[in-house]
């Protein structure tokens, strides 16, 4: 039996972990997106704020979830980076001429830029958390109340942020990068996790692309809507 620690050090073990963490991160994005999209319900941000408040009230459960999420990010990023470091070691003298054969090859802009897209995402996530959770760039806190229930008006917070063209531009850029990351990532994760029916793998590649586009588009929808609409409603 391969011990778990060994497995973490083996290429195959590592790859399975990238896939697992990648998939969970993707699922997190899906959850995050559905939360975000509740902002589009024309209720003055109530559903969204309640959702945020509900999460907040989970207390320790939320911490655990956050810790898991951070761990996922860290493991995923750590392995991703180490894959690239190994790559340099495995071929110190590079080809003078190198070309992809095409055909079944999945070498493309997306797959070749995983480290870059990933790193930008990492940077973004840190800033993003600081921005919306710790209010780094917008120190004022908006409050609202529904039926007497006092809570943070996160919706307003978001609205304000996305009325700023710089934030919208930067945010959109990163959302596109997430799409790019996932274009290769989703399919790749399936293969990492053992999708091996040759009839299905080409389908998975398409599915990966569709998921990537949907997620990116979903995340883009909100800022663009707010910015173009000049506010939430």
């Amino acid at each position: 039996m391969a011990s778990f620690a060994n497995a973490l050090q083996s290429q195959v073990g590592r790859k399975i972990l990238t896939g697992l963490t990648g998939i969970f991160l993707t699922l997190f994005l899906v959850a995050h997106l559905s939360g975000n999209l509740s902002l589009l319900i024309p209720d003055g941000g109530e559903a969204f704020n309640r959702y945020a408040d509900f999460l907040h009230d989970l207390g320790p459960l939320l911490w655990i979830a956050e810790i898991i999420l951070v761990a996922l990010f860290l493991i995923h990023a750590y392995i991703g980076i180490s894959i690239y470091r190994n790559k340099k070691k495995a071929r110190p003298v590079d080809y003078k001429y190198y070309k992809s054969q095409g055909g079944p090859s999945k070498q493309n802009f997306a797959s070749k830029s995983m480290l870059i897209s990933g790193s930008v995402i990492l940077l973004f996530v840190i800033l993003h958390v600081m921005h919306f959770k710790y209010h780094l760039f917008s120190p004022e806190t908006y409050m609202t109340s529904y039926n007497g229930e006092e809570m943070v008006d996160l919706a307003r917070h978001v609205e304000v942020a996305f009325l700023n063209p710089w934030i919208v531009a930067a945010y959109s850029f990163v959302m596109i990068l997430i799409g790019v990351h996932l274009k290769h990532g989703v399919w790749s994760a399936f293969i990492s996790l053992g999708a091996k029916n040759p009839k299905i793998t080409p389908v998975l590649y398409v599915v990966g692309g569709v998921v990537a586009v949907l997620l990116a588009a979903g995340f883009l929808l909100l800022p663009l809507y707010i910015y173009i609409n000049g506010g939430l409603s």
Partner: peptide, 16 residues
């Protein structure tokens, strides 16, 4: 692993 090959990123260039 020991031989110094790199990891697989599912590029599928190998299959090509």
């Amino acid at each position: 692993d020991k031989e110094g090959f790199g990891d697989c990123s599912n590029f599928a260039e190998c299959e090509a």
